[in-house]
């Protein structure tokens, strides 16, 4: 439950550093990127281009998309040299 007006600190202060992590901007998305790992060569181009740092990488390999923060801009799909990322409508539930 988010805080009510009586509980908030005076003057719109944000008293916790890095609290933007709690603000899940992923729900702004209308289309979501889906990675086809059969074609992915882990070149990390998508990781470089992603404006929201929402491509998860572990040990130099792409592991997936952070859907909590991916806004669905589609840059990763556009830049992927292997066409391994495709955009799917959120409305279709896929």
């Amino acid at each position: 439950m988010k805080k009510g007006w009586k509980e908030l600190p005076i003057g719109t202060q944000i008293t916790k550093p890095g609290s933007s992590e709690e603000f899940k901007t992923g729900d702004w998305r209308t289309e979501k990127p889906v990675i086809d790992f059969d074609n992915c060569i882990h070149c990390l181009i998508c990781w470089v281009y992603c404006p929201d740092s929402s491509v998860n990488v572990s040990d130099g390999k792409v592991t997936g998309i952070d859907y909590d923060f991916c806004k669905g801009c589609g840059i990763c799909a556009e830049e992927c040299p292997k066409d391994a990322i495709s955009m799917h409508s959120e409305a279709e539930g896929e």
Binding site: G4, W5, L8, I10, G11, T12, Q13
Partner: peptide, 29 residues
């Protein structure tokens, strides 16, 4: 003063983006 931006031991952010989920509560206060 209501708070102190220069208090480095208790850092705060002011002027943050305040959308549908908190703007109304801040105005109500």
């Amino acid at each position: 003063k209501p708070y102190d931006l220069l208090d480095v031991d208790n850092p705060i952010t002011l002027g943050g983006l305040d959308l549908q989920d908190f703007f109304f509560e801040h105005k109500r206060g």
